[in-house]
Design a protein around this nucleic acid. Structure first.
Lengths: 119, 119
DNA sequence: TTGACATGTGACCTTTTGGTCACATATTTT
DNA sequence: AAAATATGTGACCAAAAGGTCACATGTCAA
């Protein structure tokens, strides 16, 4: 059961930050990623490298060598498989409506929420 | 950051089994879920209860009291949010094509795979 | 070839998580 | 009311994961 690796990989905040960073822009080196991580939390290069290895083993990140650098890319396929595991295509439109609603609610200002009541 | 709870909740195999079970059919009691879990692995009711609590705290499972039972329901919204976090709507069709391809490949018999070469 | 740069790996320690149990509450049945 | 059923909670221990370091390989530039 290798999907274990995917879920374990996603279970750590630093690794999710790495995915977020690669989602924003692909093809970054370890050094570049280390820099981004250190804007949020203090961590050695070794720690970042270890996290990246887990992401690669889970196939959430792919690596392409370029000279002495290794450039990292986000692979979203495992994410899609998670989605498909618990959201079937018949209920998907309903779920999407709910998440869109949630996104809307979260962009509202507090004032806009006055009077709403979800008892 | 409460999305932490979702990813932590998904990181355990027993909890994923619980979600699979509820995905198959909603509205099960703790006792019923315990039974299913014990078809796969040995675990006390206490363990299952603890796992369920984490799922509820992550809002992946909702509970409705019915007499002395508590019926559990799968809530797929957090799953959808994971999807939306790393798959934007523009690349989604591409990713879906890839996952469909993967699903197809996995239903092939070994014989059918002869001659394929993805180098 | 030599030195600087970019990165991988196994050992080690600390923190977190998984699992069980004893005890508790709430509801149904008799 | 008392017994049986269905479930929640905090304490506790064992197992797993997170983080750092020393040491290593491979690549670029001079």
């Amino acid at each position: 059961m290798e999907d274990d690796l995917v879920f374990k990989a996603l279970a750590d905040r630093t690794r999710r930050l790495l995915l977020d960073t690669l989602f924003e822009r692909d093809g970054r080196s370890l050094g570049e990623l280390e820099e981004v991580v250190n804007q949020h939390t203090e961590m050695s290069r070794y720690g970042v490298s270890k996290h990246l290895r887990l992401l690669v083993e889970a196939d959430l990140v792919t690596v392409r060598k370029s000279g002495r650098e290794r450039l990292h890319h986000l692979n979203a396929v495992p994410i899609r498989l998670i989605h498909d595991r618990w959201i079937d295509k018949y209920t998907e439109p309903h779920i999407r409506a709910l998440t869109d609603l949630k996104a809307l609610a979260e962009t509202e200002t507090p004032a806009e929420r006055e009077g709403h009541d979800d008892g």
